[in-house]
Design a protein around this nucleic acid. Structure first.
Lengths: 152, 152
DNA sequence: GCTTGACCTTCCCACCGTGGAAAGGTTGAT
DNA sequence: ATCAACCTTTCCACGGTGGGAAGGTCAAGC
């Protein structure tokens, strides 16, 4: 490796810098290390953690996976798949599709809540009087006839 | 109605029975009491908590509000509005509409995740080869820094 | 009586993901 | 030498829920 302009065996970042450039807070970087999601960082003589470009790259990967709503556990798998050059794209796709299903399930249950609440809020006259279908519904005994609430 | 309405002065439930009929676990009933969401339960001579019909009714109210996705804080407000006979239906409606907005925001962000992931999963051939647009996307730097080409 | 087992009590620990804060050490610049 | 900005570890909190330990209570059976 006699390359002159070489990226200098990757610059070292402190945790604060790594946080800045990766978008993961210093707090969370330490946490990820503690739970074994990322390897233990190297240390300076003064016991400061140091990070290189590839560490930062990993952190960005994790960060982006978080914005996609993957759990820590799923991310651990994703990271190891990412690192494993002999992975199959099928395994990654499977994980993604499973996560999509989870997301859709969550979306549906939230939508059901919205439907119910919207109906109730619409039925509520919303003035100074105390009568309120929303409270009446919440107070209703289970088993009472309900209108819509269930998709389909 | 001058006659006695109750054949028995409101049956008393143990926490386990109250949990059964309200759908709130005994664990959570104690928790709700601890955080002041419900008043401290009465006790028997043997220090057991006792609950009456109205307590159970409140628990069911809380339970139903949970299934609608209201937070504990919102539920605390709802319960007090429910108890307060001079509330305005407008205040309840406002709370509900705010919650609906929160739910919709959450739904939208989940839907964005689904969209992104679905696109990526569709673009992934999903076979034994390691090439995978999903990982490539997660690894992609937001700024630029496209150092480590993952098979361009 | 006494034992058994189901129930209750309190208390502490865990999860996930994140942030806050205390109390101290290191670094780099003045 | 001092000061500010950074780093270190450790503990605590949130929302909500569950698990379990160690002990008390109660109703039933023998």
């Amino acid at each position: 490796m006699a390359s002159m302009k070489a990226p200098a065996a990757s610059p070292r970042y402190t945790i604060g810098r790594a946080a800045e450039v990766s978008g993961v807070s210093a707090k969370m970087i330490r946490h990820y290390e503690a739970i074994g999601l990322i390897p233990k960082a190297g240390r300076t003589a003064g016991n400061y953690r140091t990070y290189g470009d590839n560490d930062v790259h990993t952190l960005r990967f994790i960060q982006r996976a978080r914005t996609m709503g993957f759990s820590m556990k799923q991310i651990a798998t994703l990271v190891s798949l990412w690192r494993n050059r002999s992975r199959s794209s099928a395994s990654v796709q499977r994980l993604a599709r499973e996560h999509i299903k989870e997301l859709q399930t969550k979306i549906e249950s939230l939508q059901a809540m919205v439907r119910t609440l919207s109906d109730l809020a619409d039925a509520c006259h919303g003035d100074a009087r105390p009568d309120c279908p929303i409270l009446e519904d919440l107070a209703r005994a289970p088993g009472t006839t309900r209108r819509q609430e269930q998709r389909g």
